[in-house]
Design a protein around this nucleic acid. Sequence first.
DNA 1: AAAAAAT
Length: 607
Amino acid sequence: MRTSWADSVAAAENPASGSSANNGSVRTTSALTRPAYVPPHLRNRPPSSDPPAPANSGSTSGADRSGYGAPLGGSRWGGGPRNDYSRSGYSGGGGGWNNRSGGWDRGREREVNPFGDDDPTEQEFSEQENSGINFDAYEDIPVETSGDNVPPPVNTFAEIDLGEALNQNIRRCKYVKPTPVQRHAIPISLAGRDLMACAQTGSGKTAAFCFPIISGIMKDQFAQRRPRGRVAFPLALILSPTRELSMQIHEEAKKFAYQTGVKVVVAYGGAPINQQLRELERGVDILVATPGRLVDLLERARVSLELIKYLALDEADRMLDMGFEPQIRKIVQQMDMPPPGVRQTMLFSATFPKEIQRLASDFLSTYIFLAVGRVGSSTDLIAQRVEFVHESDKRSHLMDLLHAQKANGVHGKQALTLVFVETKKGADSLEHWLCINGFPATTIHGDRTQQEREHALKSFKSGHTPILVATDVAARGLDIPHVAHVVNFDLPNDIDDYVHRIGRTGRAGKSGLATAFFNENNTSMARALAELMQESNQEVPAWLSRYAARSSYGGGKNRRSGGGRFGGRDFRRDSSYNRGGGGGGSGYGASGGYSGGYGPGMTSAWD
DNA sequence: AAAAAAT
């Protein structure tokens, strides 16, 4: 028996935990056991120094896989059936992990150790808070999948054979076992399937799309990575809506890719382009970018998307909304990117309005829809409060809250407060007001220079200025540990934006508090807000219920119609879609375990 | 109407 780290974790798992339901629409209630405790002195134990065994690592749950057409067990690189390979014309091959002998092998030269643990007497790196995920909070999370031949979820990283180098990085990140979104999304991606995934950020989304991409690139020894002339040819593209989020994804992806030979480069606006160009010239496998800068690079012909095999959109619903859609279409449809079916496309977000799903199906091929119950936002982990505060009273009310926090000793580095406002001017003016009133605050918004934005974020994260006033630039995806309190000083006009904002607290299964100031300007939000709070077992004030009953159905363009207690629902299951046919869901409902498909009126256990 | 995203 092998005794690698991954296997020992597997052995510690409940051996009877495989849930093998895998076809059609599946409701899985995770019954995960508590994570095995690994004493600190054993946590960074090096894995077995044996060369990676080419097969059998799927054996821990092999029995569960019966019935699934393309078994996950068995060799991943020895020429076994790999959809993504056959699709792109590679015939498989007998390489091995870490064998990137394509002749151009500079990936590992002087690679900075992103873990900072080069010292063998290494310390736990305490700043990385993505460790210590509270897995208890992830138990009994509802999961829904739909689509044809959905690969079954896994329960351990050991079952998914990602390779030694990646396993070691997973271990260094102290990811003991996969989060729910990872359990489901990684097998789907490894099977080469397109994916639309609804899962709260902070639930391990980034790893869910990075692991399969890195693993796939490592296996692909024939991939052409060498720049031709000054043009870079990334194999994977990860797009996100803000610069800071792109930076964050880049940082995380670098950890996952450490010593795998897979090179990750980031490109975003507001920063000098020359340095980014130099990085690109040195070779890139995974490009993380914001849309504007990428379009610039494409127009300068410094990047070609010709070899893209993996496309991931983070915060995909934002990427496809009115502001971004034209740029995304240009990048994905009007440049040299391979079409859906040739590349593999993965869309992730915590929210997925129906209209956006319809739009998104243009970019996908026979995809699987995955919804994982919200971990961060819509559970008891975030206590949501709504207070009626007139516009003119907001500042003094905020001051009261901050004073109370201070009096309770809830302030400083371990209890950051994130205050959302509607406008950039409003952000500046509130920050100034807080500062002159003795509260150390800073601000982040689109009118600040990139340097100022980055400095503000750093100063906030470090606790130097424990109050951050922000516009929606900070609403999505940013992983800021120790945000104890999110204040919606101005409520957004869209309930999904509210969901993303409050998701900045209660990260990784920790608890948090969200306070919203509501007044007569927000009546259109009353109904959606009351519903959301009710769904997440929050106490809804009577006055808010009265507003909700009075108001027409508002809450922005997206109301959570049809069973909202759950992050999202596959729009292909709506009767309107089935009647009207249309968008991209080719193959949907054809066999694959949908008993009878979804005709009009067909409902599921979720309704 | 506002925010974000290229210079």
